[in-house]
Amino acid sequence: MSAHHFSPPRLSFRFFPIWRRHMLVWRKVAATSILGHIADPMIYLLGLGYGLGSLLPEMGGTSYMVFLAAGTVCYSTMNSASFEALYSGFSRMHEQRTWEAIMNTPVTLDDIVFAEMLWAASKSLLSGVTVLAVIWLLGLSHSPLSLWLIPLALLVGLCFSALGLIMTALAPSYDFFMYYFTLVVTPMMLLSGVFFPVTQLPPLWQNVASALPLTHAVNIARPLMMGVIPPNTLLHVAVLLGYMLCGFYVSLVLFRRRLSK
């Protein structure tokens, strides 16, 4: 690893044609893609929400269904961003050599990685908004404050796209991504207050949870869904932004090293 791998990101508007390229590919498969975005979170929301919800009188001061709805928006956004940054990103970088083709033009690797982050976040925003739309349709939230979940989904998407790109930069093959999902994404989903309040965890695990980005996303999402302005919003947003910036920079350094061979 040499010094120029660590230089600050040099971004330009040339990232935009790359984002348009990903969009054009996506438009060809849009129908099945949207179905995929909606099916998984809905199965969990409806299955757990109605099944488990009928056994639980209330959770966190609301019905279990409403409690779960806020968490579902966050984790489905996280999942969607992670999948895109890992599997699709790796495919474009490694399998299809799309990045290599783009780097022969005036576009640089920094632009490419930035476009990947933005694109994965765009796709996950769509995922979050789709889930949100269903939540509104089911009448689980009536507060106009729940509209704030749209920019929140974008932020959560950027955060997990950036973190996922670190894995993509390190991956020798697709198999590697299983570790990330089983050791990072799934535990995070269980620890971050998606399915039950973080306060139910033993104190040690509560501390772990407070360091996880998804916890901070849920802490903003849940009050908004219930029509309450979330306490400590700035702190939560700062944590998510921090993860995003660190994730982007670390992944960029690793991509520079990987692709300079």
Binding site: R21, L24, V25, K28, Q96, R97, T98, E100, A101, N104
Partner: peptide, 11 residues
């Protein structure tokens, strides 16, 4: 013109 083809297969 690169050594290995990297055309966009989706297009």
């Amino acid at each position: 013109v690169p050594q290995v083809d990297n055309l966009d297969p989706d297009f």
